[in-house]
Amino acid sequence: MPGIARYRDPGLCDALAADYVTGRMSHLCRARMEELCRTELLLSAAVERWSQHLLPLQEQLPPRPPPPQVWQSIDVLINTDRTPSPSPLWQRLWPWRLATLVSSLLLLALAYNTWMPSESHPSPAYLAPLSANGEIRLVISAYQDEKPGHSRLYAQWTESFLPHAPAQSYLWTDGSEREPPVLLGELGAAETEWRVSPERWQALKRSRYLLVSLDADTPARPVLQGPCLELHYDEI
């Protein structure tokens, strides 16, 4: 029989299960307990028993419909991830993934700058590849204009994501301790171009990341996010 001998003691298993189910374990203890439950049958049975005993109390709590934006955000996030390999949310933000995104975009920017003559096609001052699940879904290009209020942003969905692009979403700066996130503009399901005020342009310049949310009031639950890169051009 696999397992650790001490977890064959019904009394111990019951006490641990009661602590686990009533939420009296630290995060680390809980993680260990969940790991043990995969192999220790007595322990997992005790957890199941305590859970079933107390579940009727949870069911007595009044239900509360969540805001509709919650499902909309989930829907966008899961529809960007149809690949078979599971990838938890936190893994999507790992530095190596970001590094891959950044280098890809820099290559794109370099190619763009090489192939397009700067006289006829202005180059973006900032470029932001926004992604979900490690896949770029939207690219924001920011063009600076000397005239105040004439600087503009251009949002373009990637070809593969276009059918899933939300009808309405909102582009934000990431904000900081000193500055709250700034709404840069509203995005549609197709490519969008718009002018930004000098204040918004300054906020964009200060932003390390850009975020897209489905909520017009807050970027607290972003569905896309990515670094905002300032591009450098050698003067010819």
Binding site: V70, L77, D81, S87
Partner: peptide
């Protein structure tokens, strides 16, 4: 609501 979104993403993965 934020944690609920996280929960269903956890369920998905």
């Amino acid at each position: 609501a934020e944690q609920l979104q996280e929960l269903y993403l956890k369920v998905w993965y």
